[in-house]
């Protein structure tokens, strides 16, 4: 690591006008953002702080809290730093903004999340199922997904 976490946090906080919320239960440095702040935060991270690679994007389903948590893992080749951005969105109507205008790879990572978790991104250029057939019903990675086909392990 080229910088310590503390000096990097300072750099982060200078870039944002509002104070940041950090998620404690995480191994990487994680910023927690609201859904309406999501795009602006990621844009600042990309353009001001030079996080030029979207390494990974995934979703986590939390049915008890009625939310889907979106995870963005960013990497900066300038700072050699990694950061995770976490945003909670409504589980029944998940319509977060697409970030494919910032990082091109987001187009397909978001298609994967749409396919497996049923998150419909706004302003996505080509939102189709990626792995499953177009006539598939349901989102398999949701915790309440039921299917005639799945065999439960008998023990």
């Amino acid at each position: 690591m080229s910088q310590t976490i503390e000096s990097f946090k300072l750099l982060l906080e200078n870039a944002f006008s509002e104070p940041l919320t950090y998620l404690e239960a995480s191994q990487l440095l994680t910023i927690k953002v609201q859904e309406n702040q999501l795009f602006a935060t990621l844009k600042t991270l990309k353009e001001t702080l030079k996080f030029d690679a979207l390494i990974d994007h995934a979703g986590v389903d939390w049915p008890n809290e009625n939310k889907i948590e979106l995870i963005y893992i960013l990497f900066s080749t300038h700072h050699n730093q990694q950061i995770m951005v976490s945003a909670d969105i409504d589980r029944n109507q998940p319509t977060p903004p697409s970030v494919s205008s910032l990082w091109a790879i987001a187009e397909w990572q978001e298609r994967e999340v749409f396919d497996l978790l049923g998150v419909t991104y706004k302003n996505h250029p080509d939102l189709r199922r990626l792995f499953l057939e177009d006539n598939w019903v349901g989102s398999p990675l949701r915790k309440d997904y039921k299917d005639d086909f799945i065999l439960e392990r008998p023990w």
């Binding site: 239960a25 990974d56 986590v60 893992i73 995770m84």
Partner: peptide, 29 residues
Amino acid sequence: AGRYYTQMETARGIFGTFFVSDGNDRPYR
């Protein structure tokens, strides 16, 4: 419980493992 991410360089690029634990013996995600 928490979120964990570790990555390594395989022969084809970065292989990352992201998992969410809720304290049980199986990963939550």
